Simulated assay, not measured.
Amino acid sequence: MPMDAREIEAMIREALPDAKIEIKDLAGDGDHYAATVVSSAFKGKTRVAQHQLVYNALQGRMGGVLHALALTTGVPQD
């Protein structure tokens, strides 16, 4: 069963409460999403470490329930 964009956003927000999150369903199938996540928690972290924080927030659903997630991360601009 595919994941809903609201569920993805809620899981990310639980792990990164200050995050600004934008999610788009790329194929209209609930299986292929693009997400932009901006959080102060990413400050000083490599892009790989930032992505790992997001993937950890999804609690193992990547590659299973959530087939594909094109991810863009960053820190807030002061």
Rank of each mutant, 00 (worst) to 15 (best):
R6D: 15
Q50P: 05
I21R: 05
L66G: 12
V75N: 02
E7Y: 11
Q77Y: 04
E9G: 11
M11G: 13
P17D: 12
A10H: 10
G30M: 07
D25Q: 07
A5Y: 07
K45V: 03
R61K: 14
M62Y: 09
V65R: 15
S39H: 04
L16P: 13
R47E: 00
E7L: 14
D78E: 10
A57M: 01
A68P: 09
G44I: 06
D4Q: 13
T46S: 15
N56V: 01
T73R: 00
A35V: 03
A5S: 15
G30I: 05
M1P: 15
G28Q: 03
D29W: 02
Y55C: 06
I8A: 10
T36D: 01
I12C: 08
M3P: 12
I21A: 09
A35D: 02
R6C: 11
T36N: 01
S40Q: 11
R61F: 07
F42L: 04
D18S: 09
G44T: 07
A5W: 04
R13N: 05
V75E: 00
L69H: 03
G60Q: 04
G74I: 02
G74A: 07
P17G: 10
Y55M: 07
L71A: 11
H67G: 07
V65L: 12
V38F: 03
E7P: 08
E7D: 15
V48A: 12
E14C: 05
N56G: 12
